[in-house]
Amino acid sequence: MPKMKSHTGMGKRVKVTGSGKIVGEQAGKRHLLEGKTSRRTRRLTGTVEMSAVDTKRIKKLLGR
């Protein structure tokens, strides 16, 4: 049986914390920024913990 390969693209997008949580960039700060308020774009900076639904899928892609 061949080894499982981790999804390299997902590995570049998310980070696994020491406690096993998956964190990544918040969505919605890539384009159409002129229409969004400064307050909203500031709130979208930084990393957030992924939802429980996404976490299961992401861990599978990372081979964890």
Rank of each mutant, 00 (worst) to 15 (best):
I22Y: 10
T8I: 12
V23R: 00
G35W: 09
S6F: 13
H31Q: 09
L32M: 13
R43S: 14
L62D: 05
M50Y: 15
K36R: 02
R30Q: 08
G28V: 08
V53R: 15
M50R: 15
G18Y: 00
T41E: 05
S38F: 01
P2M: 14
G28Y: 09
S51C: 13
E25F: 00
Q26P: 04
R57Y: 13
K60S: 08
V23F: 04
K15D: 02
I58R: 07
K15M: 13
G11V: 06
I58E: 10
S51R: 14
M50V: 15
K60N: 07
E49W: 08
S51T: 15
K5C: 00
I22W: 02
I22N: 01
S38A: 14
I22A: 00
R40I: 00
K36C: 05
T41S: 01
R42C: 03
L32V: 04
G63A: 05
V48K: 10
L62K: 12
R30D: 08
L62E: 13
H7V: 06
G35I: 06
E25H: 11
E49H: 04
L62V: 10
S19G: 07
V14N: 09
V16F: 11
A52E: 07
S19V: 10
K15W: 01
L44H: 06
V48I: 10
T45F: 02
T47D: 11
H7K: 02
G28D: 07
G35S: 12
V53C: 03
S6A: 14
E49C: 05
Q26Y: 11
T17D: 14
T37S: 06
K15E: 04
G46M: 09
E34I: 02
L33V: 05
R39V: 03
R43M: 12
G35H: 06
T41F: 01
K36Y: 08
Q26W: 05
T47V: 14
S6N: 09
K3M: 09
I22C: 00
V14E: 08
M50N: 08
R30H: 11
E34S: 08
R42H: 07
R30F: 06
M10H: 01
G9F: 07
K15V: 09
Q26V: 15
L61C: 08
K12N: 15
K60M: 11
G46F: 02
G24M: 02
R64G: 02
T45P: 03
K29W: 04
R64W: 09
R43C: 09
G9M: 10
K56C: 03
K60R: 15
K5Y: 05
V16P: 04
R39W: 02
G46C: 10
